[in-house]
Design a binder for these strands. Structure first.
Lengths: 203, 203
DNA sequence: GTCTATATTTCGATAGAC
DNA sequence: GTCTATCGAAATATAGAC
């Protein structure tokens, strides 16, 4: 493994564990087993190293969202993605960056974060649109809204899991979201609630 | 205003803007207009000052959740709480702490964060339980799960809003959650999807 | 390309005058 | 109670030998 790779790998791990601001070049070099000069030879500084390392983390997040465009009915795919194992107490590699003041002030890093969420949200939106078309979700569903709701459940699940130091809140939040989706599916199957049932329905 | 109060106010503001790790005693003192000696007279250090300041932020979060136990039907209260104005791009004063490595490693601060979420979750759970009892939500609803789902939508909304530097994702996530709740309510009004409707229903 | 040595600034905290 | 002066350590980066 090249020195450059060892540096980006170490930085990626520390970005996840500690965030950007709290990660010092010294720690990165120590974990990579590399001297100070090497780092400043390959990268102009902490910023450039973080950008290079963070691209890898983003690719992972985006790859995981592939199931949304995979096999099965739209709602199956949605629920499968929701149910994917997520290490709640470790937090989301990407989402955690949004709470780091140095990241938010860094246009390049923030653009990477925003781009990652955009890509995943687009996949959510596509799957939800298909679910509505298939009659699996109510016609009144706004795909773009629900996409962000489900993204938020996952990101919020990480927050709650870290607050409690436990995986349980993440799993419970996901179960609750799936239950809501199932209720919406049931409602979609019986479209307009009425007080006076139609003749056909009683036949 | 006492020197002590000026210090806690300044610390509370900086905790929200920058988090714990990224806030230095120097900045706090500068914003409070107070010398270094004063701070170390009133508090043993950064940690103790942050604990004192953070209690105030938590009281605010908990007070805002009062609507969950207020006027109106359970679902009305739930949707009113969801619809409360939330400064997405500023982030949640409490939730942001969970991404701060120094906070997670600090048992006292972490306990404050966990306690705040527990208190709000208990109010969510109570309101949801009432909604189920009133037939506003399906009997199959697990109140504790849905409570964490809705908490997560808000916390995740902050994450997405900060990623995009815009309020829009927060508002969309909340709209999507309300739409799901409405769908669940519709499903609750027509409990068991059946192919053969009962006699009474057609009378 | 990689290393060690050093520079500069800021961190969190202490000392001690007033 | 409040201030200024100062400490030791760590942050980020540069210099320059090999």
């Amino acid at each position: 493994m090249s020195t450059r790779e060892r540096l980006t790998d170490a930085m990626a791990a520390l970005l996840w564990e500690r965030g950007y601001a709290a990660t010092s070049p010294n720690e990165v070099m120590a974990r990579a087993g590399v001297g100070q000069g090497s780092m400043y030879h390959h990268f102009s500084g902490k910023h450039e190293l973080a950008v290079a390392a963070f691209r890898g983390a983003i690719d992972t997040l985006i790859a995981e969202s592939g199931v949304l465009a995979g096999e099965g009915t739209p709602v199956e795919r949605i629920e499968r993605y929701l149910a994917q194992p997520r290490p709640g107490t470790k937090g989301c590699r990407v989402g955690r960056m949004t709470q780091d003041p140095q990241v938010v002030q860094d246009p390049e890093l923030l653009a990477l974060v925003a781009g990652a969420f955009d890509t995943v949200a687009a996949r959510w939106t596509q799957a939800i649109t298909e679910a509505v078309a298939a009659g699996e979700l109510p016609a009144s569903t706004v795909p773009g809204d629900l996409a962000l709701t489900l993204s938020a459940v996952l990101q919020g699940g990480y927050v709650l899991a870290r607050a409690k130091g436990s995986q349980a809140p993440m799993d419970a939040a996901v179960r609750g979201a799936v239950a809501l989706l199932e209720a919406a599916r049931a409602a979609a199957a019986r479209p307009q609630p009425r007080t006076t049932p139609s003749i056909e329905e009683c036949s």
